[in-house]
Design a protein around this nucleic acid. Sequence first.
DNA 1: CTGAAAGCGCTTACAG
DNA 2: CTGAAAGCGCTTACAG
Lengths: 346, 346
Amino acid sequence: MFNTQVTGKHPHSVPTIKDVAKAAGCSTATVSRALATPEKVSDTTRERVNQAIAQVGYAPNIAARNLRRAESKTIVALLPDISNPFFSEIISGMEDVAHQAGYQILIGDCEHDPARAEAYFRLLSTNQADGIVLLTSEIPKALIKQADGQADFPLVMACEFFSDIDLPLIAIDNHQASCQAIDYLVSLGHQRIATLTGPAGNPICLERLRGYRDTLSAHGLIDQACVAEGDFGFRSGFQQGLALLDNAQRPTAIFCHSDEMAIGVLKAARQLNIAVPGQLSVVGFDNIGLSEYCDPELTTISQPRNEIGQQAMQSLLHLLRGERVIRRQTLSSHLIVRKSTGRVNA
Amino acid sequence: MFNTQVTGKHPHSVPTIKDVAKAAGCSTATVSRALATPEKVSDTTRERVNQAIAQVGYAPNIAARNLRRAESKTIVALLPDISNPFFSEIISGMEDVAHQAGYQILIGDCEHDPARAEAYFRLLSTNQADGIVLLTSEIPKALIKQADGQADFPLVMACEFFSDIDLPLIAIDNHQASCQAIDYLVSLGHQRIATLTGPAGNPICLERLRGYRDTLSAHGLIDQACVAEGDFGFRSGFQQGLALLDNAQRPTAIFCHSDEMAIGVLKAARQLNIAVPGQLSVVGFDNIGLSEYCDPELTTISQPRNEIGQQAMQSLLHLLRGERVIRRQTLSSHLIVRKSTGRVNA
DNA sequence: CTGAAAGCGCTTACAG
DNA sequence: CTGAAAGCGCTTACAG
């Protein structure tokens, strides 16, 4: 395991604000002010301080600053599973806003493990994080029970939410998005439309399911409703796809709650020699990068992921500053029609 | 933008070690020791301290601890692009080892922007991070020039590396992996084998390219060599795929340096009505989750990603403890044969 | 505009 | 085994 090289601790100590003060011939307070509030320092002093900083190669110890200011300038982005490409663009939007405000993002990957979620929440009480953007509802509710109604709890939800805990939320209208997808399928002549949901009980899936049922009802097709449950991943799409399709009375269209599941369904259809879109139409959800490159290209619902991330971070920053925050911001989604859907065949 | 609710700062102050000491009737030093080195504290005192902690609801301020100990217990995982699913499993392996050792991972997404990389490196000098696992060679070399040869610089590379800077590295043998892929294609009867590389100059791609050329030479096929350059993403695979295939003298096999590019090539082949694997064999690299769900399922090279992440973190922890570290750890890759490759047609 | 001083919440030799 | 005290590197009222 060990080999070649030896290591040791830092050879000489890192310069501190004291070293700068000495080099500039002023107090540490002045150095600090020259950095934090340059306008409160005379031009000549500021000049000398800056030279001294360059000379000694000073970089402020942010840990010390944060301790003194009682903040960490760190925001946790808590997500269920980092391997889901859906989140990367949201993170990206968050980072843009965060960096501009001097915050950094700590990505908390729960991996569907409550203990992990708890560990990330603990960062809040141990002063290692100032706030959380919660991108999953798959965490122990006890962790946020304290936040219920409490307007200043530094937590914002994005995309996902809890049915019974009121927290600031940035998300699309999942019910409406679902209605739009089903309406579209009906307009293509489909009557037997199945849906493949995410995990049972997930509030956004419940909303989408409600949209599905409402729209089927509106068209007098509710007796044809057929619901299967997946977990958003490829494999569950494939498996549930086989189950739904290996059946004489199989559906002519399937609306999936994620693109990965939709792609799993495409594989199931191939295996059963069911042509898409000839004999089966498939709609996904999220418009991940891949949805343009699978075969056939996927019809799906696009969420403004970057914007969701930006708004979520923006709202959290407001909370952190003690400002008011909108409880619910709804951004618009839209249906992207590609090649996986078509008119129903006779 | 603003609405409904008002917020405010923490209503009452968070308990500190002083509060615990008071409640337990001992000094703060004893409380600190009861937490850090319980064996140095008498049973009865430890008991009282623990009760006091529970009573006042104390959680140590880690920021203060870190300042005092001059460490952050944070490791940066610097990667080129978080949307690439290749990295998630590596991160996961890193996190397992890191958490066990009391460290947390800060994911640094460079988004191919040198300024971002620099910002993450700066965390090192500002005491916000203790070390870096570098998963990209796409950063300004100036950032690590100081580390050249310096055995204790807290930086470990994983997967990627620099040709001219010697740093501890955990990776597969890219040359050999490439040889294996090409050997396999030759064994299927292919003679015109093209390769689609990642960004020009990327050292791992250069290694793979060398393997490609060496193997073609070994089989007397070097005059058939055909190299195109992509950027690892879907789109470049599609575009370069079209360029390579829309051609009478087109190759009968393409070895791609990423699965996403391979999937882009599959789309290009579809568009040109070229059957895979009937008229074209395609090999990818990385074995991302998707490679089992595209059509046809992708033959690809699998890297032990979780293990790479674990070893990288392990090595970094050694460095941090001032211990020796192997300069180069080579883990084995293997070829996974699926449906995108077949014998060449007459 | 500037400095002396206190303090953020911990940890850790040092002395007992 | 325990405590008093110093100190980690900053920031910020306070006084001038």
